[in-house]
Structure formats: structure tokens, C-alpha cells
């Protein structure tokens, strides 16, 4: 009996936690489908006539549409380059340069110690001088610091978990270092590496401060979403909600993938 009560207690507690965690998101999602008058009523409405007007407004609004496009370009390019440079670097650190590995790892991590505000202002000056202020190229460049360092930081342990004997067995079959990396280390570490890339993606997708300071016309979606409040005299709650949903969707999808991946990894577990 006591067991049953504690089991029910745990479930209730979990339910409350889920409501607390998901409540705001859920409310935002609901709000995205409401007319303004349904949102600003004193009594919150759960039953209402859904509308896609808010999304239409967003997608018709060139600023938001551009923001979305810019975000997609900047984030995918910087994550891609981060992966292309970071993953091989991580393999070298994990396998061939273990001696320097710890120092390099710490240096890479230290790049993340600095508050972005501290680098934002010098970056404005440098970017203005170089003429890359308010360009997608400039944003990609500064995001590369984040993506490369995060990818390296997460990929080194992923490669360290690849059993060294597997690479040695491949070497016994005549594979050179590049072939071992490409045909063995990379596929074996792939699930963890994918997780690292998703995490990196989410990190830069949500980045606001650097985008806010280093771009004006060519801003990314978080900047646009943050500035939506000044779109009209009336606060367009529905539009804000819809913009938030669009902004949150990619990270949510990726995190879902990530969780699924983590689960399969835990279940099958490298022995």
C-alpha cells in the first residue's frame, strides 16, 4: 500500500513538474493560434477558434522572413564549418596529440569563459574597420569561435570512447591514418558526434547578444523576434507568440532527435 502511495506521489510530482516546465511553452503555442481579442481577455480562454493569421503575418513580414533566412544560413554554415574543422581536430587531439590534448582542450574551453559582451564591443570596432559589420559573413565568422570550440570540446571524448583496438585492428589490415579516421573512428563515434552537432546548432541558433551588436539590417531571427514588440502601437501578442514558435521549433526538433539518440545509446551502450 505504502509503495502504491509513493508511486502515485512520484507521478503527481512529475505531472506538476511537467506542467510547470511545459506550461509557458504550451501557452505560447496556444497564443500563436489565437486572435488578439482572445489573448487579451481578462479570463483566459482555452476554447477558441484557431487562426493561422499570426503565422501568415510573420511569413508575409519581410523582416521576419529575412531573419529566418539569415538564421538558417548563418547557423548552418557556421555549424558545418565548425564540424569540418572541429571533428578532425578532435580526433587528432584524442588519438595522436594526447600530450597536448589537455592544454588545447582547456584553451578551447577558455574561449567560452569570456562573457560575449566583453568581446562584442571590440568586434564592432574591428568589423566596422574591416567593412564586415552587419554582414552574414561577419556573423558566421564570430559564430565559428563558438561552433569550432564546442564541437572540439564535445567530440574529443566521443573519439576517446572509440576503442583504440578497433583503430589498431584497422591499421593491421593496412589502413592509413586518414582511412582509419574516415572508415572506422567516424562511423563508430557518429552517434555522439551527431549529438555534439545538434547541441552546437542549438547554441548558435539561440544566440542573441552578438547578433544584436554585430548586425543591424542582416539580423538573425532571435534579434527580429526580440524587436517585434515595437512593430505597432498595440503589442501584437499573437504575432510574438507565432514568432517564438517558429524560433523554438528547430531546437525542439533537434532536442527530440538528441533525446532519442541518447536513449538508444544508453540502451545499446558501448561494451
Amino acid at each position: 500500500m505504502g509503495k502504491l502511495i509513493s508511486a502515485i506521489g512520484v507521478r503527481v510530482l512529475l505531472a506538476v513538474l511537467i506542467v510547470v516546465a511545459l506550461g509557458p511553452i504550451l501557452w505560447t503555442v496556444l497564443g500563436a493560434f489565437k486572435e488578439l481579442r482572445d489573448i487579451v481577455t481578462p479570463v483566459p480562454k482555452l476554447v477558441f477558434e484557431p487562426t493561422l493569421d499570426n503565422f501568415a503575418t510573420i511569413l508575409r513580414n519581410p523582416t521576419i522572413r529575412d531573419g529566418l533566412l539569415h538564421s538558417a544560413i548563418v547557423v548552418s554554415v557556421s555549424v558545418l564549418i565548425g564540424a569540418l574543422l572541429g571533428i578532425p581536430a578532435a580526433h587528432v587531439l584524442a588519438r595522436h596529440a594526447r600530450r597536448y590534448g589537455d592544454d588545447v582542450q582547456f584553451f578551447v574551453l577558455s574561449l567560452r569563459f569570456m562573457p560575449p559582451v566583453a568581446i562584442a564591443i571590440p568586434f564592432i570596432v574591428i568589423y566596422l574597420d574591416l567593412g564586415i559589420y552587419d554582414t552574414l559573413f561577419g556573423l558566421i565568422l564570430v559564430y565559428l569561435i563558438t561552433t569550432i570550440s564546442t564541437v572540439i570540446w564535445l567530440a574529443v571524448p566521443a573519439f576517446e570512447r572509440v576503442p583504440q583496438n578497433i583503430e589498431e585492428a584497422a591499421a593491421m589490415e593496412g589502413c592509413g591514418p586518414a582511412e582509419i579516421f574516415w572508415r572506422f573512428s567516424l562511423p563508430v563515434a557518429a552517434p555522439s558526434l551527431f549529438g555534439a552537432l545538434v547541441f552546437t546548432f542549438v547554441l548558435v541558433w539561440n544566440e542573441l547578444l552578438l547578433a544584436l551588436t554585430l548586425a543591424a539590417q542582416n539580423a538573425t531571427l532571435p534579434v527580429v523576434a526580440a524587436s517585434i514588440t515595437s512593430l505597432g502601437k498595440e503589442v501584437p501578442w499573437g504575432v510574438i507568440n507565432a514568432a517564438t514558435v517558429v524560433l523554438v521549433l528547430p531546437p525542439l526538433v533537434f532536442i527530440g532527435l538528441l533525446m532519442g539518440l541518447l536513449n538508444t545509446m544508453v540502451r545499446s551502450g558501448p561494451k
Binding site: 583496438n165 578497433i166 593496412g174
Partner: peptide, 20 residues
């Protein structure tokens, strides 16, 4: 010589099979 050119084959304690 690199391992692949020595004409030797090795069996490891941990089996070292290619998991993929």
C-alpha cells in the same frame, strides 16, 4: 614498416571487431 605491410594478423583481447 607499417603494420599492414608486415604480413601479420592480430587477435586482440577485446576482440576489436568493427561494430558498424
Amino acid at each position: 614498416l607499417p603494420p599492414g605491410e608486415r604480413g601479420v594478423a592480430m587477435v586482440f583481447q577485446s576482440y576489436a571487431l568493427y561494430p558498424h
